[in-house]
Design a protein around this nucleic acid. Sequence first.
DNA 1: GTGGTCTAGACCACT
DNA 2: GTGGTCTAGACCACA
Lengths: 124, 124, 124, 124
Amino acid sequence: MNIAISSTSEKPIYQQLFEQISAQILKGELETGYCLPPIRQAAQELRISVITVKKAWEDLERRGLIHTITGKGCFVADLSPDQRLQIRNEMILKQMAGDASYYKSFGLTIEEAIELLKKVYPNE
Amino acid sequence: MNIAISSTSEKPIYQQLFEQISAQILKGELETGYCLPPIRQAAQELRISVITVKKAWEDLERRGLIHTITGKGCFVADLSPDQRLQIRNEMILKQMAGDASYYKSFGLTIEEAIELLKKVYPNE
Amino acid sequence: MNIAISSTSEKPIYQQLFEQISAQILKGELETGYCLPPIRQAAQELRISVITVKKAWEDLERRGLIHTITGKGCFVADLSPDQRLQIRNEMILKQMAGDASYYKSFGLTIEEAIELLKKVYPNE
Amino acid sequence: MNIAISSTSEKPIYQQLFEQISAQILKGELETGYCLPPIRQAAQELRISVITVKKAWEDLERRGLIHTITGKGCFVADLSPDQRLQIRNEMILKQMAGDASYYKSFGLTIEEAIELLKKVYPNE
DNA sequence: GTGGTCTAGACCACT
DNA sequence: GTGGTCTAGACCACA
């Protein structure tokens, strides 16, 4: 687990968790069958509440990225690279559609939006 | 006033108001000196609480987009096209920085991000 | 009448009027017996409401700086230079006491306060 | 919390709160990371409305003096003594500029103003 | 338990 | 009739 939680961020902690783990799974960094740490351990390591971890894990399961086996733990789901790519694009596009319409509402052309996006895009 | 409030949106109502009116001012649709509707009237038209409208108006004033004269009303601030453009870009960049880091966390390169953005960008 | 009204100031207009005319009387710029313009005329010249002017005139009379003769107009009161100085100091000290306790509450020593006051004091 | 609210003061309650807590933070009386009382508790202790407290807290956060973590509480921000001094001077100077121009409008020279300020400045 | 949002409604200052 | 302040009280998201 390589997670960075920011308590000052405006994003809820459970969502930060969800997004970071989703990203790691969809990028293939966490392999199929990999066992996530038990929620109590994760909570302790990240110094957050068990409830918060649980909520993130539930969201991951709902999205089909992990599956829980009661009494055993939570495992990364068996997804082909194609499936991973598809889910990733679904998640990104859903977010991006909202972002784009926001930019548009301020009168930005697609060219202006690209221009600004290049400015702020994080480097490798 | 040409405002669309969505009560199902995840965004708070006052923020929707703020964003839509900001956009209209920064696009020049609302001219310098234009008098916004009184908060009570706006509240009635939009069927929301006076306080919610007031909160949006306060944010607009704090951002320098309008100025309030007690007993008279709220007026669109005197901004040059350059100033409007600058404020617009500040607001957009702040939002876009968060968006971009989200895309990046899923492994998107800037090129991929631009590609997808073109796909979802609302037409003229 | 040499008055500058700012509608963007946070100070109420009637108070701006009161302060500026008080200052002119107490500095001796408006001499004893000088006849203030009728409220309707003043309101028209300054482009403010008659009620607002009336309120300022009332405050001036209450403070003993002018006296109204019904049907004739408002006249600068008969004050000796000493009296003017005394009233000025009363007004200034009352204001300054509040200001000073504010500075003090932020931990400023008198020396620091003087230092900063020199920085911001308007030039001749 | 060591706060004194005056309901007879001309200053709004939320502003009194803001000023007193700002002062305490900037003087270093409230240390970095100190957890302010929950708004509901503060409201009860001070016998004012929750909303009034919240408004003061929001202003503090906007000024960078505290940061709010939803579900946890509001904490004094991490500021170096230098930063505290700078913010203090910014706040004081902003206030003092208005005060000074008031004194000036009554014909006080900077020397006279300093003289009077010494007279009224609260003792240690 | 925390803060975040929204509501209805009152009273006051200013114009 | 304008905005400014304050009130009591509700419901929700988050931890």
